[in-house]
Design a protein around this nucleic acid. Structure first.
Lengths: 113, 113
DNA sequence: CGCCTTCATCGTGTTATTACGATTAGTCGA
DNA sequence: TCGACTAATCGTAATAACACGATGAAGGCG
């Protein structure tokens, strides 16, 4: 069995520029989706946590938040569905990390408002 | 009676730097609040509209959106409560414009994630 | 094999969001 | 003063968000 490392789940900093437009109806919906995902303090905290640790943290995210495990799991799901984070199964635990592309996209969209 | 102009309601581009911290629990909540306000396509559209028109647009925002007047009014309220826009009564109509300070704050917070 | 750990999912209750039409409260012009 | 116009608010309904405990699935260890 191969040992899993951060590289197994954290994308290696894709530097390709994003060609999608920064405005228009589609950009509006994209921005709304991403902003909505960030629209809760717990999720902001989670994203920050995952950004800080350049390697990906696992479910000890739960220990960092004053919320029940199931609630944290739900927030992680919201972030994942918005494309902001990714979760990779690693044995009995799950390794989460940010999706740098999506975060960058969010920054571009917000900056472009 | 003095004639109202854009300057009556649109703040004149306050350039003072924002001294509040860009992270921490308070920043998280602030970011969450602002992001949540932007977390709907209609509100993204409204904000963009108000940014485009450097002068402030009035309730013809309603004409730009495929929504009922009452619904738009509600979205405006959400944005106002988040501090992102301001509304000044000008005769029988209301003049809305962005709060540049808040928008700048949002950009700083997002960029700082 | 059983057991423990880790995490997702389910079920539930509460509250918030979204949308609409109808109503109300101003302001202006005739 | 009387309408016309603008925009907020109310009432209502449907859906979504949030949080929790309980349950379930999947992997590793003794």
């Amino acid at each position: 069995m191969k040992a899993k490392t951060a590289d197994d789940c954290c994308p290696p900093a894709n530097d390709e520029p994003d060609l999608r437009p920064a405005e228009g109806r589609e950009a509006d919906e994209e921005l709304a989706t991403l902003a909505k995902a960030l629209g809760h303090p717990a999720r902001v905290q989670i994203v920050r946590l995952l950004v800080r640790k350049t390697a990906c943290v696992c479910g000890d995210i739960v220990d960092e938040l004053p919320l029940a495990q199931s609630t944290v799991s739900q927030h992680l799901k919201v972030l994942k569905e918005a494309g902001l984070i990714r979760g990779e199964v690693d044995g009995p635990r799950v390794c989460y990390c940010i999706e740098p592309r999506a975060l960058r996209r969010l920054k571009v969209l917000v900056a472009g408002v």
